[in-house]
């Protein structure tokens, strides 16, 4: 299966790699299926390409790259959506992966949304943009890499 994107041209879609957001993302509720892509010139970064909207592609980075000790916190509703146990946070890096969406706006320093990471259930590939119930991290955190080996330019 192939899909023609605005930024990556025609890509091959491996169905097993597709990430499914049952409720979309805030602002993009109709976009349910995304494919994480890598680019040789952007090591350590993840391009979350929509498979419904050719021009929609988020730039993201694993949260641990920015905060080596990132602690995940999800609401009961989001845990339920991913069918994860509600009595404890999921194990980051094993049960789930969490990506912070980056924002590069011209004329402004790049920021990362650590308040609302994209949380992907590793086994089922179901995902949700999980807005933290607390305010431990912000929506517009300046980019400071703590795990440099994951990002060597």
């Amino acid at each position: 299966m192939t899909f023609t994107t605005a930024h990556f041209g025609r890509i091959t879609v491996d169905p097993a790699a597709v990430v499914e957001f049952p409720e979309g993302l805030p602002g993009f509720e109709q976009c349910r299926r995304f494919l994480p892509l890598n680019h040789p010139a952007a090591d350590g970064l993840v391009f979350l390409q929509s498979l419904e909207s050719p021009g929609l592609c988020f730039l993201a980075v694993p949260v641990q790259t920015l905060r080596a000790d990132y602690r995940i916190a999800m609401t009961a509703e989001d845990l339920d959506l991913l069918r994860l146990p509600e009595d404890r946070p999921p194990a980051l890096g094993r049960e789930v992966n969490a990506l912070a969406i980056l924002s590069l706006v011209e004329g402004q320093p790049p920021t990362a949304n650590l308040r609302s990471p994209v949380v992907i259930h590793a086994a089922t590939r179901r995902a949700v943009q999980a807005i933290r119930p607390d305010e431990r991290y912000g929506c517009r955190e300046p980019l400071v890499v703590e795990k440099t080996e994951a990002l060597c330019w």
Partner: peptide
């Protein structure tokens, strides 16, 4: 707030 951030972030690759 997340919605506004997503809308801004979605333009990253256009720039």
């Amino acid at each position: 707030q997340t919605r506004a951030e997503n809308l801004a972030a979605s333009r990253t690759l256009d720039a």
